[in-house]
């Protein structure tokens, strides 16, 4: 089991930016007003963004599985 990373589902993301404001590592950005994008190098897998997300589109996954839900 690898490190945990935040993995937003970009199809259901509403791009509100709540996660961006809550991330303690400034690892999330809203890509061109379309969806949340996580910098996996900065993400420490704390899960704060997951708890804050009003649309529940962020899941915490093992490092190797990042972007699986991003099809």
């Amino acid at each position: 089991m690898g490190k945990r990373k935040a993995n937003p589902n970009k199809n259901n993301c509403v791009a509100c930016g709540v996660c961006v404001g809550q991330c303690p590592r400034e690892a999330i950005s809203i890509y061109k007003g379309c969806y949340a994008l996580v910098d996996t190098l900065k993400c420490i897998g704390c899960g704060i963004c997951q708890k804050a997300c009003p649309a529940d589109v962020i899941s915490m996954v093992d490092e190797g599985e990042v972007s699986c839900g991003n099809s």
Partner: peptide, 25 residues
Amino acid sequence: LYKERTWCSFCPMGTMTQGICKLKN
């Protein structure tokens, strides 16, 4: 009832601006 900013997930302005951004992109 739900999360702090649940309104944002269906806010008409939010939907509109995200739609515009998706079109532009």
